[in-house]
Amino acid sequence: MTPPPAPLSRPRPRWPQWLFFCLIVRPFFALFIGLRVRGAEHLPGRDPFILVANHTSHLDAVSLMSLFPLSRIPRIRPVAAVDHFGQGGLLTWVTRVCLNVLPVARKGISRENNPLPVLLDALARGESLIFFPEGTRHSGEQVSAFRSGIAHLVARAPQVPVIPVRLVNMGRSLPKGALVPVPLFCEVRIGSPMKPHGARQEIVRALEEAVRELG
């Protein structure tokens, strides 16, 4: 059993995130990108769930969060690597305050910084996770091989539904290293919820297949 999470000394205010989504994210995806959503009926009506998607752009997590009603957004946590998003500066501020990311270690995993308890605690609090099992942003529209971390999480939380999602054109609109997005139509394709089980490798393969099939 993991110990209960320590209460936050000061709960983070919600209004910056609320303003960020109302004034920037939603208008941006509606008027600039023209986000197309296929399979919206597969989005779970309640938390927690684990959303698993391919990763090509900084637009990925925001676009996925924008699909949910504002009241639920604070409970939806993109899982982000500390080594990229925890280095201070504007990126860290935006991801912490506006996206409310769940920072986890990606490199040099030890007993102290093991991400698994952090993720399981979040699920236990009723928070949903957005997870990019490719581990980093890739270029191109192909789905790269999933890393095994997601399987450890899914195996330890077998009752939580996993939603496979394929993101299209996000990496063409705002590729790695670019600062200005190009207004291309992007698409979110949502697959039906799954509860994969079995050996770690089978779970990884099942999820990877599910995301790839949405292509």
Binding site: G34, S139, R172, P175, A178, V182, P183, L184, F185
Partner: peptide
């Protein structure tokens, strides 16, 4: 926007596409 979305653009075209719009 509809036209460029369907183009087979290369990653190297990104800067030029920003200018295009």
């Amino acid at each position: 926007k509809e036209y460029v979305t369907l183009l087979r653009t290369r990653p190297a075209d990104h800067g030029a596409l920003v200018l295009t719009f």
